[in-house]
């Protein structure tokens, strides 16, 4: 049985920037334990010398000519922002005041 404890769920949720309720923590801990136990079988599928595949159709060094192409205007880029000011995205403070 894997160790997806409620505390680990809280930590992972905080890394994922998702607030979770106590009820969700309990629920996810149970569900994720079952899922992790099941997917952990991949560790038995392979022995050492198998190459990893990160992409199904290998392609490398995909370049294009270094020319300026049309892109969104500043106004368009900001048009869906929840808040903006002076042509920029506006957000709350990054650091706590205290």
């Amino acid at each position: 049985m894997s160790e997806i404890t409620p505390d680990l769920v809280r930590h992972l949720a905080s890394l994922s920037r998702i607030l979770v309720t106590d009820q969700e923590v309990e629920q996810f801990a149970g569900e994720l334990s079952v899922i992790v136990d099941s997917v952990a079988m991949v560790t038995k599928a392979v022995s050492g010398d198998v190459a990893a595949t990160s992409h199904p159709i290998p392609m490398a060094n995909v370049y294009r000519e270094d020319v300026i192409l049309p892109s969104l205007t500043q106004e368009q880029a900001l048009s869906a922002a929840p808040d903006s000011a002076d042509g920029r995205f506006k957000v709350n403070a990054i650091l706590d005041e205290d």
């Binding site: 599928a45 990893a52 199904p56």
Partner: peptide, 13 residues
């Protein structure tokens, strides 16, 4: 986990 899963991808190919 992630590393083994990527190797499984190779085995499937």
């Amino acid at each position: 986990y992630y590393g083994s899963a990527q190797k499984v991808r190779t085995l499937i190919q």
